[in-house]
Structures are given as structure tokens and as C-alpha cells.
Design a protein around this nucleic acid. Structure first.
Length: 117
DNA sequence: GCAATGACGCTCT
DNA sequence: CAGAGCGCCATTG
């Protein structure tokens, strides 16, 4: 627990992202909320920035609330993300946006398992 | 402890 | 729906 040197609160963020099912996408705010730090959507993005390419965290499933890929600085990984998402079965709008109404991850549904009631 | 940075979110037009 | 501006919070130096 508190013995995480570099990661810090990021561990909680990574844990939430890893829970995102394939074919779905989550927003920074959503991840931050589930991570226990609502309002700190920026830190979620910052945490992903520190993610290694060998990590088991599906960072490509994390996008902004606008359903678009953020134009991060000094990297072309933004293109890679779109390719990965399309590979997951997610489609993009003509403007490069994703219909969150259909692809946004819903932690309550967990896997479209029956109706929550 | 203070100041600066950052893969964002929300509201208004 | 799309575009622009301000605010929020956590991490780092």
C-alpha cells in the first residue's frame, strides 16, 4: 500500500483502467471518479503519460469526455491509440470522434450481464 | 513549502 | 453538434 514510490496514487488509476472491457472506452473523469479522485481527470491523463509501453494497462481505451483522442504533446502515439481502438471494434465519427452513447464503458453493466434492476 | 506543469471537464454561445 | 474560455486537482522540481 503506501510503499509505492513512483506510482503513488497512480496504482489506483491503473487498476480502474485495467477493468475496462474490450470494445469499450472510458473517459478520464470516469476513471478518476472510480479511482477515488473525482475532479482530478487531469491527473489520470498525467498518470497515463508515465505508463510504459510494456504495461498491462489498456491506456488506449481511455479518452476525453468529448469522445476524442487528446492531442498530447511531443508524441505521435495519438495515432496509435486510434488504430488500437478500431482494432477493438470501436468506430470513429467522421470528425474522429467516438459515440460515447454506445461505446462509453459502464461499470454498472460490467459486461452487459442482465439488467441491474 | 512554494511554484509550475499537464493524454481534462464543464458551461456558455 | 461544434467551438472557445476558465477552473480543478495531484505530481514533480
Amino acid at each position: 500500500m503506501a510503499g509505492s514510490p513512483s506510482t503513488g496514487r497512480y496504482e489506483k488509476i491503473y487498476a480502474v483502467i485495467r477493468k475496462i472491457p474490450r470494445g469499450k472506452v472510458g473517459t478520464y473523469g470516469q476513471v478518476a471518479l472510480l479511482a477515488g479522485i473525482p475532479g482530478a481527470a487531469r491527473q489520470v491523463g498525467y498518470a497515463l503519460h508515465a505508463l510504459p509501453g510494456d504495461g498491462d494497462v489498456p491506456w488506449h481505451r481511455v479518452i476525453n469526455a468529448q469522445g476524442k483522442i487528446s492531442p498530447r504533446t511531443g508524441s505521435d502515439h495519438d495515432v496509435e491509440q486510434r488504430i488500437l481502438l478500431e482494432s477493438e471494434g470501436i468506430i470513429f465519427d467522421q470528425r474522429g470522434r467516438i459515440p460515447l452513447d454506445t461505446f462509453q464503458w459502464d461499470p454498472l453493466r460490467r459486461s452487459s450481464r442482465r439488467t441491474p434492476g
